[in-house]
């Protein structure tokens, strides 16, 4: 089942200008893989080459930061909404 993935402004240019797209998968990792299949320019920007969540983004399943769930293995149900936002930090 496809889930809704909401993209931050900085990634919309890589996704045909869309703020929200549909992607398939039963886990956060599968959905992000499908997102990159659809929009290859997002490759490496959300999940690193070694298969972990990029430290400059936060990914949420509904209201929860997936780093506090099962990270990329977090399971998704129908109607779940995945949101990607920049991790905002500095010194």
């Amino acid at each position: 089942m496809p889930v809704e993935v909401r993209l931050p402004t900085m990634f919309r240019g890589d996704a045909a200008g869309q703020a929200s797209v549909k992607a398939n998968g039963g886990t956060i990792g599968e959905v992000l893989d499908d997102l990159v299949r659809q929009f290859p320019r997002l490759g490496g920007k959300i999940v690193t080459d070694d298969g972990t969540l990029h430290r400059f983004v936060n990914v949420y399943c509904n209201d929860e930061d997936v780093r506090y769930l099962d990270k990329l293995d977090t399971k998704l149900a129908d109607d779940d909404i995945v949101t990607i936002l920049p991790a905002v930090a500095g010194g």
Binding site: N58, D63, T83, L85, A87, V88, A89, G90, G91
Partner: peptide
């Protein structure tokens, strides 16, 4: 959430709520 005098990290949950 960095709780530092030299670094900051915006609470990810509050970022989502603000968004």
């Amino acid at each position: 959430v960095a709780e530092s005098a030299k670094l900051y990290t915006v609470d990810p949950k509050q970022h989502l709520q603000a968004d």
